Simulated scan of single mutants.
Amino acid sequence: MCWSATADLVAGTGIAVIGAACVARVRRVRDLPLAALPLLLGAHQIIESVIWRSGGGTGPATLAWAVIALPVLPLWVALGVLCAAPPQARRRLLIPIVAAVATAVPLAYSLATRPVTAEIRGHTLGYALDLPRSGLLVTGYLLATVGALLLSGDPVLRSLGALAAVGAVVCAALWRLESVSTWCAFAAVCSVILLVRTRPDPVPEP
């Protein structure tokens, strides 16, 4: 997520503040799940700052990080997009919803039956969990998250999906090099986009 405990803590706190502002500005109940997404992302990074400071390994913080990252996030994004999307887009969003469920269930089962560990690798944290059919799970995960945003029928959410796709590629490449983890920067930008989406409509002049 970020390259150090301090970076995770600062970024997580800032993103959570943006999330609180998004929730406060929501005008439609059906927009609430997506508006609250930065709160989840912020909490996720704050949890990772605890993992950094503990030197990695197993434990409640590592498990909490994995639960949010693996089964919770694809379901949250897919359902949030379904709630916020215009009616004409909801039928095609059933595909990401099915992908989210099909991905989250085996991920949750793996977390319940197998240990997850974190390891500090330079300026990144690596997480290890024995996953069956990991390629299929990654495909389903991306369809549930990036795919849902791209299929949303909402111009702002489509832009968010494109940004998330680029961010996933860039962050994965840097993470594999074990040079630096940059997902927190993309999470911050995505949170700002959601904040813009929840801005109040301008008051018409009399």
Rank of each mutant, 00 (worst) to 15 (best):
I47K: 01
W52D: 05
G122P: 03
V105G: 11
G122F: 04
V166D: 01
C83Q: 14
V50M: 11
T117E: 14
R53P: 00
L194G: 01
G14N: 09
V170T: 08
I68W: 03
L129G: 13
S4Y: 02
L82C: 09
G57R: 03
G135Y: 02
L9Q: 09
L151N: 05
T13I: 12
V29W: 14
Y127S: 07
D8H: 04
P38V: 06
L40I: 12
V156P: 01
T113G: 10
T113W: 11
T62D: 08
D154N: 14
G135C: 09
L136N: 01
L143G: 02
A43R: 08
S179K: 08
S134C: 10
A20K: 02
V196N: 00
V169M: 13
V72K: 00
V156A: 13
L37W: 05
A66K: 08
T145G: 09
L143V: 15
A84M: 07
A69M: 11
A165N: 07
T103D: 13
T117V: 14
S49T: 10
G135F: 03
L157Q: 08
R25A: 13
G135K: 06
R199I: 04
V196A: 08
T13A: 14
R92P: 00
L151T: 09
T13G: 13
R25S: 13
A118D: 06
S49W: 04
A7E: 02
T117M: 10
L129Q: 12
A16M: 13
L63A: 15
V50D: 06
A84P: 01
A85N: 07
S179M: 10
L82M: 12
A36V: 08
T124A: 09
P132C: 10
A7T: 09
R28K: 13
T6L: 14
D201S: 13
V67M: 12
A24H: 13
W175Q: 11
L125N: 03
I46D: 04
L163S: 06
S54D: 10
C171V: 14
L143C: 11
A5M: 06
P202S: 06
R27W: 02
P38M: 06
P155F: 03
Y109L: 15
P206D: 14
A173I: 11
G153S: 09
S159C: 09
G167C: 07
V101S: 04
S181G: 14
G167T: 05
T113I: 12
V26T: 15
V50F: 11
W3C: 06
A104M: 07
P71S: 09
T124Q: 05
V116N: 05
